[in-house]
Design a protein around this nucleic acid. Structure first.
Lengths: 223, 223
DNA sequence: CGACTCCTTGACAGCGTTCAACAGTAGTGG
DNA sequence: CCACTACTGTTGAACGCTGTCAAGGAGTCG
């Protein structure tokens, strides 16, 4: 389930905003796809930085309805904004490597007046809020096709506009992120495929090639 | 539109978390219903504390669709979390009195190591995030009746469970907050009225009496 | 009074859900 | 290797919730 392998020893750069905190600050953990990093309402003891893989954060209702708040990809930092307890559950979508750091260590730095660290934390929280507000706009105002387009543009941007977009998440994850059903997600993707805006690579339906990003963006909701 | 009347001189207590910042910190402004406190994308120069009245914050799409992110009532503090620029528009719903303070003054305090102020700011931001995440859950997972029930319970709680709930906002505001149409909001309220869970006082449809809060809560979505 | 806004209600349509069937893939074990 | 199962994703058909359109009542303001 969870394997701590000690402080990181790789030579890769830390691709994030808290890198200044230094290597010794973090230690590495691995999670199998489907296992939880933490659960809603648990005490928030650590912050997480994704090194490889992907994580979904969600809230769930008693009858099983699930709302995914965000997908977290390599480089993303997680749970900085959670205070005493986690307000949602975090689950590895695929096998995932993360660096974790104790929140206490981080706050100790902040208390000592570490200005850059404080700025980084503030930036992270601001970005989280911004994402949530855009998500609210999407859920409240957009129709199904617009939602799927917005999702594709978001992931494409966050993956750095790759030739082939490899989605770690299932259609169900996408549906629960966009507040719709898997069937409607699938139908919307089929519409975009029929319009030659995208295609699936090979027989896998999780590898998407965007043929016309500007045409895709035209289908998006404009602010 | 906007009338500055100088530092506040009333004897009322400051009903909020930033009260320790002191009276001299704030000055009073009045806004007519419908006028804007600030617009999306404007530089964020002040923070706002509502003394009387109500404010809606929203984002708007180019075709007119509007998503209200939150309603702010007396005592609420606004725009602490906005960094360089405001990420949404804030508009007085009715005639509203606010205290405003320069962000620079607040940040100067934080920079000087004012721990209580920093904690208060962190609490405010956490609460804002929590509200946004619950809002996402509502918009993504709930049907129209559940949304209206959630709205009523939220306002009832924030007004301190009054005998008569006087809504400052229109049905359109409620609809744009819940991601539905005015007609459906109206129909949902009629359902609750027909079930004797609530009634309208007098001929005004903005004054609501909750007859059975536990029955109302049963209709709510449970986590 | 007329013009306007706000709200409710009815009729109807349509978007998205629900239900169902089916195909493709992956994993497991004989 | 194949059989079997579980899971994932797509597509079709029908239903129903919610949006759209329309009408009308009630309150407000000049």
């Amino acid at each position: 389930m969870l394997v701590r392998v000690g402080a990181n020893k790789t030579a890769e750069p830390v691709p994030s905003q808290l890198s200044e905190l230094g290597r010794a600050f973090w230690s590495e953990c691995k999670y199998r796809g489907g296992s939880k990093l933490f659960k809603e309402a648990e005490p928030a003891s650590h912050v997480y930085q994704i090194r490889e893989g992907a994580v979904r954060t969600y809230k769930q209702l008693s009858d099983g309805r699930r709302q995914i708040g965000a997908f977290h990809l390599a480089g993303d930092i997680l749970a900085v904004e959670n205070c005493e307890t986690h307000r949602f559950t975090a689950e590895a979508i695929v096998d995932t490597t993360v660096w974790i750091a104790k929140r206490r260590s981080l706050f100790a730095r902040l208390a000592k007046g570490d200005i850059p660290a404080a700025n980084n934390v503030r930036d992270l929280v601001t970005r989280t809020l911004e994402h949530a507000e855009n998500h609210i706009l999407l859920l409240g105002c957009q129709n199904s096709l617009e939602k799927v387009v917005a999702f594709l543009l978001e992931i494409d941007r966050r993956l750095g506009h790759p030739d082939v977009m490899v989605l770690p998440m299932t259609r169900r994850d996408i549906a629960d992120y966009l507040g719709m059903t898997v069937e409607t997600v699938s139908r919307s993707l089929s519409v975009l495929r029929d319009e030659r805006i995208l295609s699936f690579r090979g027989t896998k339906q999780r590898e998407i090639v965007l043929h016309d990003r500007s045409k895709l963006a035209e289908r998006a909701t404009s602010v």
